[in-house]
Simulated scan of single mutants.
Amino acid sequence: MVTTKAYAPASIGNVSLGFDILGAALAPVDGQNLGDWVAVSDAEQFSLTVDGRFADRLPPGTENNIVTKCYDFFQDALATKGVAKLKVSMHLHKALPIGSGLGSSASSIVAAFYALNAHANRPFDKDTLLLMMGELEGQISGSVHYDNVAPSYLGGMTLMTGQDAPVALCLPSFEEWYWVACYSGLSVSTAAARRILPKEFDMQTCLTFGRQIGVFIDALYRGDKKLASSVMTDVIAEQHRKSLLPHFDEARSYAKAQGALAFGISGSGPTVFAVADSLSTAQAVQTWLNEHYIQNEDGFSHICKIDTAGTRVVSE
């Protein structure tokens, strides 16, 4: 029996200043995996099994699992392409919490599509696969966006183009930066977090948003860490979403007082992230977040670097 297993890392959506158009993949510095994996195995009849720390939080019933939806979507796409359907079973290892702001659904989706495509000898190219991933992610969040699926798939920091091809561009990042990601243990619905936002923004906010993106990308390419970190503020979502995150303001104040370069909400939250230019600063922020921001036993934190590998096939 042939098995193909793919791992997809967790990700930070928005990266504060890039609502819906920036994302970054995460790799803990201690070597742990922070992401889901999906295995595809030859089988006469489809079945799905699940395990992992957060498997019991998934919707009941195989038909309601997003991995099953990926399988159905992929099979239909094969048929449209004139390629024989796969005869496989699948297994999901659910390591990321649902509604965490770490790209949990995106990680499962990306790992599933990547494993299916690899098992089928890669009938779909990168952009076609990304479009599939975005469409499935949209079914959960209520709108198609790529700020989690793209970095999880491609690795690194990604900028979404708004085009069918290329769907996303990979940006430079700073190897010296540490990214502290802390999940509080609560759950925030992406769809609900989008509903809390205004439908329209004033011109000054739009100008600030566009200016920050332009300055940030320029700073990344020129290697100007100080300038890049200076514009990592969220003028779109944070002021509205932080009401869903207990102790957010206190966490930000502490992180900045310790010398963090930036602090913000990861995706829709409740995970928050801090950027530091030294391990000692990252450790100090992590310690405070562990003691004051985590709300229950589900919470956790990691000190990370940017995962430049993205989704990959891994051995059993």
Score class of each variant (00 low, 15 high):
228 A>V: 09
206 C>P: 00
171 L>V: 08
219 A>V: 09
190 T>Q: 04
271 T>K: 12
221 Y>A: 11
190 T>L: 03
269 G>Q: 07
222 R>S: 15
246 P>A: 01
204 Q>R: 15
174 F>M: 07
205 T>K: 08
227 L>S: 10
276 A>I: 12
273 F>E: 04
298 D>Y: 12
259 G>R: 10
205 T>A: 03
247 H>K: 06
304 C>T: 13
271 T>L: 03
238 E>A: 10
269 G>Y: 04
240 H>K: 13
218 D>H: 14
246 P>K: 05
260 A>L: 07
258 Q>A: 13
288 W>E: 03
305 K>M: 07
226 K>F: 02
204 Q>V: 15
240 H>C: 01
235 V>H: 06
249 D>N: 03
243 S>Q: 14
305 K>D: 09
308 T>N: 14
186 L>D: 05
227 L>I: 11
172 P>F: 05
188 V>T: 11
201 F>D: 08
180 V>G: 03
193 A>H: 09
266 S>V: 13
289 L>K: 06
268 S>A: 15
250 E>P: 00
297 E>P: 02
222 R>C: 12
170 C>M: 11
228 A>G: 06
247 H>Y: 02
208 T>V: 13
259 G>C: 09
177 W>Q: 11
256 K>H: 13
266 S>K: 11
192 A>N: 13
233 T>P: 03
216 F>K: 03
255 A>C: 14
212 Q>S: 12
250 E>M: 03
212 Q>M: 04
233 T>C: 03
229 S>V: 09
179 W>H: 13
166 P>V: 09
233 T>G: 09
304 C>L: 08
209 F>Q: 13
280 S>A: 13
248 F>V: 02
288 W>A: 00
255 A>R: 13
274 A>P: 05
276 A>D: 09
258 Q>R: 15
285 V>E: 04
219 A>W: 03
220 L>D: 05
293 Y>A: 00
294 I>T: 02
221 Y>N: 14
213 I>W: 04
175 E>L: 10
173 S>Y: 13
249 D>S: 04
238 E>D: 07
226 K>T: 14
212 Q>L: 01
209 F>T: 06
265 I>Y: 00
272 V>H: 01
302 H>T: 10
244 L>N: 09
241 R>L: 06
235 V>F: 03
233 T>W: 02
179 W>L: 12
276 A>S: 15
269 G>I: 08
174 F>N: 13
252 R>H: 08
219 A>N: 08
269 G>R: 07
226 K>L: 06
234 D>F: 01
217 I>P: 02
193 A>G: 07
201 F>L: 15
263 F>H: 04
300 F>H: 12
261 L>G: 14
254 Y>R: 00
276 A>E: 10
170 C>D: 04
283 Q>L: 01
200 E>Q: 14
205 T>Q: 07
276 A>G: 08
168 A>I: 05
296 N>T: 09
274 A>E: 01
